[in-house]
Amino acid sequence: SCPVAPASRSSQEVWESFSQCFTPAVKEVVEFAKSIPGFQTLSQHDQVMLLKSGTFQVLMVRFCSLFDPKERTVTFLNGQTYSLASLRALGMGSLLDAMFEFSEKLGSLCLEPDEMALFMAVVLVSADRSGIVEVGAVEQLQENLIKALRSLITSRRPDDSTLFPKLLLRLPDLRTLNNQHSDKLLAFRID
């Protein structure tokens, strides 16, 4: 309800609120996944496994647009804005620094919204394969989406042959972010 945490809110309350921010965001990734052509042709088991492995990375791409490098603030999907300083005080400093760095790199590619959406689809289906049963089906879907992304990007920017490879190089960045930060702790108040 408050864009910037006032002094009257305890750090615990801010932390609870921050933790809650992820809930609607995760639900939106699930809805987004269902809209990816071919995703729901995968077995439900494999859909769940990809979402469990890839949602954090999709969120990292999605959250990039919520970073304001000039103001050094982050706005979450429930509309609340936190300064980097206040979030750092909650112990999220290393994650946020890594995300500012990632968002600057991704932002420099100046993707259009549809390109960003297709990139997020590629990110999701490129997630870790542990636990996937029908690996072939997932790989075929990944190949189709990468082809579509390449076609979209190169048709719009035929003179920039480096853009698509640079974009694919963001995939290992996302895996690193995932490995370093998905074990961060959140706290939810039990009333």
Binding site: T23, T55, L186
Partner: peptide, 25 residues
């Protein structure tokens, strides 16, 4: 006094996804 459920971001994501699919079955 308030009590908290503490979990990792990964576990929280897993929990939401499992709930969503169970709800839609």
């Amino acid at each position: 006094p308030k009590t908290h459920r503490v979990m990792t971001l990964a576990d929280h994501i897993s929990h939401i996804i499992t709930q969503d699919f169970a709800r839609n079955q």
